[in-house]
Design a protein around this nucleic acid. Structure first.
Length: 423
RNA sequence: AGUGAGGUGGCCGAGUGGUCGAAGGCGCACGCCUGGAAAGUGUGUAAACGGCAAAACCGUUUCGAGGGUUCGAAUCCCUUCCUCACUGCCA
């Protein structure tokens, strides 16, 4: 959520920056400013009214104490009107606040200078490409065939017990999955990220805090009996650990990592691109998150990108880094780098990580601030990224490391797996 | 799940209708004292919103959350969430 005070000061700059998202934000911005003016005027009126009735109440109290009951009762008669109008003003103020919030909820975050123009994923800018694409022999297969051949992932079984998009990992597949989680967590903690194990269900307030609610309600599984949501990413519980906090500069930066399963309804996704591990309702992911001083978040994003690069380099997977264009940029982000691994057998790039700087957009919803001076608090910056999402890494390994004799295990994972081949 | 007791500032804790943003203590900050420190001592010590572009200052709100009673609520009533203890169940 953007800050209304900042919009008020320079709406042109906001509108200009938002053209990168191919929207004309000016009408929304102006409407927000208008509602905000209404809100402030109502606030002032209400305060004045309440102030008057507080004064009267005090007088009445004093009169009663000194035994002047009659005078007190006369004053009492005057309070009715004030009460009426304060009630009235309070209602109007509430409406104005709700209106303003709704408007602000619908304005996306402002893209950074470096975000390329464009409308679809075709316009994303390839900033780096690493690793050699292996040459596979003729019998090379996509991962959904390989997992059957080696009996390591069973989609049918998942179908039976739950439904489509809930695979069952078996044998060396399960072990490889566990190895990846441990490997990622070890890499992240070694880089200074504090490991967190958090609940996989969150309440409504947390959903609002990170921006899944109200707009993406349909993407989350909702547990009606208890009014809780299954997390779509560890970002939600981990970021919300700091919801409402006021930090000291010495506490910064805060860097956390956590492994969780992620649950996504993915309503409306069908077809070939959701085949196999490409898109699931439940998948595993290890996430990294940072809470940063506003001056340091740009550097932090670069550091996170380097960190993810380092992991992919170690896994020796061919990958590229994209800078998302304005049209593809997530609602809450100012700048996002996507990492894609090349799946040789599918001849396709698979997104395995997305690293973003949200600046104050989430912090504003979360009310996550730091003490910036004696009498001053300011919003912090939040960032997060996947390090990494499991299924497509798994797909990438299976497909790129396949040989006629079986699937080789990347060297760095061998100690974690306890074997070096899936045969 | 049942019964009982609770939820007050960074922390502990007092406060059952008015002068309570809230005693007292701890902690923290600054000063005095000291060769330096400890001890002692003095002062200060919440946030949000508005007036306002900012400071000073002023106003409003906030005692788990939401509603209600009242001229006036931390205090009374209702709803709800959470914590603790005992009982039940259970990995």
């Amino acid at each position: 959520m953007l800050q209304i005070a900042a919009i008020r000061e320079n709406k042109e700059a906001f509108a200009q920056a938002l053209t990168k998202r191919n929207i004309d934000a000016m009408p929304m911005l102006e409407q927000a400013i208008e509602v905000d003016e209404r809100r402030r005027s109502l606030q002032a009126q209400l305060d004045e009214t309440l102030s008057q009735s507080n004064k009267l109440s005090k007088q009445i109290g004093e009169l009663f104490k000194s035994g002047k009951a009659q005078e007190a009762n006369e004053l009492k008669a005057q309070t009715g009107e004030l009460k009426e109008s304060s009630k009235n003003l309070a209602e109007q103020l509430q409406t104005a606040q709700n209106d303003l919030q709704e408007l602000l909820y619908n304005i996306p975050n402002v893209p950074q200078e470096s975000v390329p123009a464009g409308s679809t994923d075709e316009d994303n800018e390839v900033v780096e490409e690493h690793g050699a694409v292996p040459v596979l022999d003729e019998q090379a297969q996509p991962h959904w065939e390989l997992v059957k051949k080696y009996d390591i992932i069973d989609f049918e079984l998942g179908n039976k017990i739950t439904g489509a998009g809930f695979p069952v990992y078996k044998n060396k597949g399960a072990r490889l999955q566990r190895a990846l989680i441990n490997y990622f967590l070890d890499k992240n903690t070694a880089a200074g990220y504090q490991e967190m194990q958090v609940p996989h269900l969150v309440n409504e307030a947390s959903g609002y805090g990170t921006g899944q609610l109200p707009d993406k309600e349909g993407q989350m599984y909702h547990v009606g009996n208890d009014d809780l949501y299954l997390i779509p990413t560890a970002e939600v519980p981990i970021t919300n650990l700091y919801r409402g906090d006021l930090l000291e500069e010495k506490d910064l930066p805060i860097a956390m990592t956590g492994y969780t399963p992620c649950f996504r309804r993915e309503a409306g996704s069908y077809g070939a691109h959701v085949r196999g591990l490409n898109r699931l309702h439940q998948f595993d992911k290890v996430e990294i998150l940072r809470i940063e001083h506003p001056d340091k978040s740009d550097q932090a994003l670069d550091d996170m990108v380097s960190h993810v690069k380092n992991i992919l380099d170690e896994l020796k997977l061919p990958y590229r880094i994209l800078r998302l264009c304005g049209g593809d940029l997530g609602f809450t982000s100012t700048l996002t780098y996507d990492f894609e691994v090349y799946s040789t057998a599918q001849e396709k790039w698979l997104e395995v990580s997305s690293v973003s700087n949200f600046k104050t957009f989430q912090a504003n919803r979360l009310k996550l601030r730091y003490r910036a001076g004696e009498k001053q608090t300011e919003l912090l910056h939040t960032l997060n990224g996947s390090a990494l999402a499991l299924p497509r890494i798994m797909a990438g390994i299976l497909e790129n490391y396949q040989t006629a004799d079986g699937i080789k295990i990347p060297e760095v994972l061998v100690p974690y797996c306890g074997f070096d081949m899936i045969q």
